[in-house]
Write a protein that binds this DNA or RNA. Structure first.
Length: 285
DNA sequence: TTGTGTTTTATTGCCTCC
DNA sequence: GGAGGCAATAAAACACAA
C-alpha cells in the first residue's frame, strides 16, 4: 500500500532541524506537542541528507523528493480509517498506534484524521437535525393553521346559533331550550368539518338530562363572555389536540423538556449515522 | 487556463480530566 | 501538569464553470 508520506516544508527552521508539518500558520519551529521535528540525519525512507540549507531550495531536490507540500491520504488509507471510525469514533492510544503502523502514517496523522472526521460528522449531523426539526416545525405550523381556522368556524357557528335562539325567544316567547334541539340547528351543527369538532358540538348540545343543552344557562354565559365562547380550562381539558400534538406540561411521563416528545423521539432515531439514536459522545451544542 | 468555491490535512489555543 | 478533545483557522489539493 502506498503510504502517505511526511509533509515537509523545506525551509530550514534553525540549526539543522526541519519543520515537519503542513499548513496552518507560519512554518515556525514551535515547542508545542504538535511539533514534529527531526534532524536531517533522521530523514526517513532513505531521503538524502542535505549538506546545506541551500540544498533544500535546489529545484532538483525539491522536485524529486518534495514535489508536494501537502499530500492527501490514499484511497485505501481513507477507506481503512473510515472503517475504523465506523467501529469507534474515538481513538485509544493503542488503536492509534496500530492503525498508524498498518497505514504507514504517523500516529499524529491518524489522530488528526479522526479529529477532523468527528468534526465533519458533527457538521453533517447538525444539518440532518436541522432538516428534521424544520420538517416538524412546518407540520406543526400547518396543524396550527388548521386549528385556528376550525376555531373561527366554530365561533361563527356558535354566534349564528345564539342569534337564532334569541330571535326565536323574542318572536314566540317560548322557552329557549327547545329551539336548540330542533332539527335545522342540529343540521347546521353537523356541518362542522372535522371529527373532533363534530364530536365537541354533539357533546355540548346533546348531553345532560332532559335534553337540556349548553344553551340554557351556559348560553347566556357564553354570550356574556367577550374573548372566548368556551370556558378555557374546560375546553382545554376536554378537547383533543390535533394529531401529533401533545401538551407541554405532561407530568405523567415527566418529559417536560420537549413540547412534542414523540416527535423528538423520532428525530432521535433519525439522528444516527446508520443506527438508531445519536452516539453517546454526541451532545447538542 | 484561470478564477472561485469546496474539501482535506494540519496547526493553534483553550478546556477538561485524571 | 500532561494528554487528549474540540473549535477556529490556515493552506494545499481538488472540482468545476466560464
Amino acid at each position: 500500500m502506498e503510504s502517505g508520506r511526511f509533509l515537509f516544508n523545506p525551509r530550514p527552521c534553525g540549526g539543522n532541524m526541519l519543520y515537519l508539518g503542513g499548513a496552518g500558520g507560519d512554518p515556525v519551529l514551535r515547542g508545542g506537542r504538535t511539533m514534529i521535528s527531526m534532524t536531517m540525519h533522521e530523514s526517513p525512507k532513505g531521503r538524502p541528507f542535505f549538506q546545506s540549507p541551500d540544498d533544500l531550495y535546489d529545484d532538483e531536490y525539491y522536485d524529486e523528493f518534495y514535489p508536494e507540500k501537502k499530500r492527501r491520504l490514499t484511497h485505501d488509507q481513507v477507506q481503512m480509517l473510515e472503517k475504523s471510525f465506523d467501529e469507534e469514533n474515538k481513538l485509544e492510544p493503542e488503536r492509534k498506534s496500530q492503525l498508524a503502523k498498518k497505514l504507514g502514517l504517523q500516529p499524529r496523522q491518524v489522530a488528526v484524521w479522526f479529529q477532523n472526521r468527528r468534526a465533519r460528522w458533527k457538521t453533517k449531523q447538525l444539518e440532518r437535525d436541522y432538516d428534521v426539526l424544520k420538517a416538524s416545525y412546518d407540520l406543526l405550523l400547518s396543524n396550527y393553521d388548521s386549528v385556528i381556522k376550525e376555531n373561527a368556524d366554530l365561533k361563527s357557528q356558535v354566534a349564528s346559533l345564539t342569534e337564532k335562539c334569541l330571535a326565536k325567544e323574542l318572536d314566540g316567547g317560548e322557552a329557549p331550550i327547545p329551539c336548540v334541539t330542533s332539527e335545522p340547528l342540529l343540521a347546521d351543527i353537523g356541518n362542522v368539518s372535522t371529527p373532533h369538532s363534530s364530536r365537541k358540538a354533539e357533546d355540548r348540545l346533546s348531553s345532560g338530562s332532559d335534553g337540556s343543552t349548553v344553551i340554557d344557562d351556559n348560553c347566556r354565559q357564553l354570550i356574556d363572555c367577550c374573548d372566548s365562547y368556551f370556558p378555557s380550562n374546560e375546553y382545554l381539558q376536554c378537547a383533543p389536540l390535533p394529531n401529533g400534538l401533545q401538551m407541554e406540561h405532561d407530568n405523567s411521563n415527566n418529559n417536560s423538556n420537549y413540547l412534542f416528545s414523540d416527535m423528538f423521539a423520532v428525530t432521535g432515531q433519525q439522528n444516527q449515522e446508520g443506527l438508531g439514536g445519536p452516539p453517546a459522545w454526541w451532545t447538542w451544542p
